[in-house]
Structure formats: C-alpha cells, structure tokens
Design a binder for these strands. Sequence first.
DNA 1: CTGAAAGCGCTTACAG
DNA 2: CTGAAAGCGCTTACAG
Lengths: 309, 309
Amino acid sequence: MTGSTPVSDGTTAKVRAAMDELGYRPNGAARALVHGQQPIVGVIAPDTAAYGRSRMLTEIEDRARASGYVVAIAILDPADADGVSAAVEVLLSQPIVGVVVLDYNSYDTVRLHSKLGAIPIATVTNGADADADVAHVLVDDRAAARAVVDHLLDLGHRTVHYVSVPYYGGRSHPRELGWREALDARGIVPPGPVASDWTVDSALMAGAVLAADAEVTAVFCPNDEIAFSVMRSMHDAGRRVPQDVSVAGLDDHPLAASWVPSLTTYRLDWGWAGRSALELLIDADVASTADARPANMLLPRESTSAPLV
Amino acid sequence: MTGSTPVSDGTTAKVRAAMDELGYRPNGAARALVHGQQPIVGVIAPDTAAYGRSRMLTEIEDRARASGYVVAIAILDPADADGVSAAVEVLLSQPIVGVVVLDYNSYDTVRLHSKLGAIPIATVTNGADADADVAHVLVDDRAAARAVVDHLLDLGHRTVHYVSVPYYGGRSHPRELGWREALDARGIVPPGPVASDWTVDSALMAGAVLAADAEVTAVFCPNDEIAFSVMRSMHDAGRRVPQDVSVAGLDDHPLAASWVPSLTTYRLDWGWAGRSALELLIDADVASTADARPANMLLPRESTSAPLV
DNA sequence: CTGAAAGCGCTTACAG
DNA sequence: CTGAAAGCGCTTACAG
C-alpha cells in the first residue's frame, strides 16, 4: 500500500479488492504514531468572520487540502491569554506539523507555546512585530494606508482624520502609522484620532463624533467595515459623502463596490497572504512564493472627492 | 496522570515536576490509537465567508474547544463531487468523532461517505432534506421568508418579486418556497423570479433587471448580501429605496443596520444552529438543546415602506 | 517478491 | 499504592 516494497500485481489487486470489500480505511492515528507527525496544520485566529481573515482561512484550507493536510482551527480572542494558552494546548495535543497564526496580537503568546513544544509556526504580519526567528508573510499595511491618505490629500483635503483601533500592547496600528507618515510627509500635524474598536456600534459612535466636527472633510478608516459604519453616521448627521466628507477604507471588502456611495479603498491580497503562510509551513521550497507577489492597489471610488470650496 | 489508578501525592508531584521540566506533552496520536478515536470533529462547508456560515463556524469551534475537541475544517464547493469525496477521505483518515455539515447541497455526498466509514454526522438543515436518519438542527428558512414577504404585503404591495438562487438538485430554495406560500395564501400569482447566484456581480445584474421593470415595487432577496447589491442596482437605475421600491433580505447581516437605507430583514440565530449541531455530535444529552430555541424575528427597517399611490 | 518481527507512545488491566 | 506486560494499528527494516 505504501509502495515502499515491490509487490506483484496480482497480490496488489487482491489486497485492493479486500480493502474495498471491507471498507478499510487506514487509521491515521496509528500512522501518525509511526511517523511522529499528523498531517494536520493548525490555524489560530480571532474572529474569522472579518473579511481579511475569512479570505486567508479559505485559501489556507484550500492549499492545505491540496497537499493532503487537514486544517484544525482555533478561533479566539487574543486578549484572553488563558484562553489562547488552553487552545494551544488542545491543538498541540496532536503531533501537528505546525501552526499558522493569523493574528498579530496573540503572536507572542503562541510563539511562547510553540517554543515549549518546538512546533513550527508561520505568521501573517503587517511588519510591526516581524521577527527574523519566525517564518512570516508580510502584508504592508503601512504602505497601503499611506497610499489611501495620499489619495485624499491629493484631492485637495487640508488634513485627513482617522478612526483608531486598539492594537497589540497599546502600540499604534501600522495603518495608523501609515496615516501619520503621509501627513508628516506634507508637514501636516495629524489631528487627534477618534477611538473605536472593531464592532459596528463602536464605529457608528466614532462616525457620529467625526460628523459633528465641521472641520472634518476627509476620514481614513482602518478597514472597510468601519468605513461603512462611519458613512452611515455621516448620513444620519446630514453630512453627504463625498460632497461634505470623503470617507476611505482599506481591504476592498466584497461589498465596498456595492455600497452607496461605493467605497474608496485599497485592495490587499489576503488570499495570497494566507496561502503563502501555509506554504512556509509545508514547503521546503519557500523561495517559490517570492515571485507570486500580489498586485495590491488603490481603488478610488465614489466615497472620496475634492473638498467643496 | 489519567487518574485511573490511586497514586501517592508525593509520586504525583514528582511526576508533574518531571513533566514540566522536560516540557512533556502526551502524544495525541498514541492516545487516539488506544481509544480508537481522536478528539477531533470535522466541519464541512462551502464558502465560510458567507455570514450565516461564518457565525456557525465560530460557535461550533467555541463549543468544541470548551469540550476539548479540535475542529478540522474542509471548505469546498458542493458542486464539485470529486472534491467533496477527496476532502472527506482526508478528513476521515483521522479517526474523528464525527462531522458537522453546514451545507445542504453536499449533504448527500457526505452521508454516503459517512455510511461507508460509519462516521456520525450532524447537519444544519432548512427542512428541505431533513431526514430522520441523520441528526440535524432545523433552521426554518421557509417560515422566515414567509414572515418577510407577509411584511411587504401588509405594507400594501400588490405583489413581491424574488431573486432566485440555485439550490440542491435543481429544487427550489426553501426561502423561495416561503415566498410562494405567502403570495399563494393571498391568492397572488407569484411573478417570475429573476435568476442570480450568490456572487455580488450576479446579484447586481439581477437588481438591474428588477430596476428596469416599472411594475416592481417590492423585492424579497434570499439573503442580505444579495439585497445589498439589489439596492445598489436600484440606486444606479435612479429608483429610490424604499420610496419607489422596497427591498428586504434575510439573515440580519452585521452591516444590515448600517446600510443606507438600513435593510429590513429577518434575524436567524445561526450561532445557535452551529452550536446545537455540534452538541448533537458530542453530547449524549441531546434534549438539552430543545429549550434553547432561538428568538428569531422580523426586523423592519428603512428599506421597506408602503408603496407610493 | 513474501512473511513476520520490532517499535512508534500511550492506556488499561493485572500482579505484587 | 507501584511496576511491568499487553495491545491499540500502522510502517519499516530484515530474513527468507
């Protein structure tokens, strides 16, 4: 069956026939015992419903299955350190091949555990905590944010406001850094960001705060979902998008083009990121991913325009 | 360690200390060999990015982890029978506890394989192919659709149009059946549905067809994502929602309330469905799920109103 | 080519 | 309470 030893055709056929007749299926656990490893890769991520992660998960699973691996998933709140530890324990109770981490925040926690168990990990990072010790795929959030803010500035806005979201260890999100960089480059002092989290309700409130400020003519949101809610709040406050306020997001969510007005955003190739991270784990031939670099791009749409004079 | 045999406290402590020092972790494969089963449950679903399924997956994983199970996922196009078979093989190469099927369409395929391997399965079904032989959680799509269409009719619309989507074996989707039922109950002959699939582009085209028909004053869409696109097409054609055309969806997508106009829809408790399906697999005490019945409900919002006279 | 032994890392009886 | 044997279902050398 394994093909490791020459066997006559007749015998092979007889064995195969018996297998079919009995519905025989090799026991993966026994196999794993011998090989010392299960053909399983773990994925750890918070909230896989968010657009980027859901894309990555889909592509990881697809790529893994193509190579005969099963994907085991743990979805957790990275803030819950105990929960993360427990989940890692459950995952590592199987002699799995490695773990793909789709969350920057729980990154350190997982790395800790991975060291304990010597389990390989690969992570998708936006650069903030890239670490030469850990295999990672880089998604350049900062450059993407800069491109969006530059677009807004190029349209003639004097400044661009930002909705901030919590980030790893109290640091600034790379998208926030990109926003600051773009303003700094033109000698503009960044206005104070309006705080939000990743929920719809919180984003609606942040949007209301921005809508109430007559100075605001352009808003950059850290992702498209937040931008949708901000546009809603602008509408509720009677401020037209883009005539009164331009709003831009980041990711290119599937609904971004359907929204009224359609959302200006920046496409990030999350599918590529997920796939590449997985290959880091199961492929020796890592270099092959280098030339598959994604075509990220700015997508100007209806939600942004020059400010009214 | 297993607690199956009495051991003195001193010895227990020494063993624990040694475990910590060596970073010992029991080998799950060896354990599984003895027990004849891995603490793994499989999940088979197409496109986990869609709202309902992403909710179910999240809850399934959460519930499974709480009981010490790992969730192994296979994401596949149900139309691809060979792909489904292959994925099931990969999944079943592990002696897993069972499989939760989140897709009505691939249901039969999986059942076939599950019979071969005698692997228990639990499925989330909308009633169309409910089968007493298979453990299932019922999500009453038909009743939900009826409630939405009734709402539209109650507002005074003479009829309600429908965007149809492909379904299992060429049959009508239960949401389509609910739509027909509601119209039939009032003696209204259902207008021909406009065909679409689950993609944004296809829904936009269906919306354009409906927008071009001056007779159309109310549209029921099989889910919220499609409704969003239909609203976009209405806008592009210069038809106002809800003044000229009322549009309603089904699911209560997180963005439904943020959309402009906010979308009238019907909340389905997908989290409950996923969780319950998993419990069917790992809990002997199935009855406990019965009284946890979800509070589904109609959510009238801005996208629907009485027709202009 | 074929057959039988050893061993993967555990758990469960079963003697002491 | 402690220690050592048997066996879970496979794969890999190793004799014939």
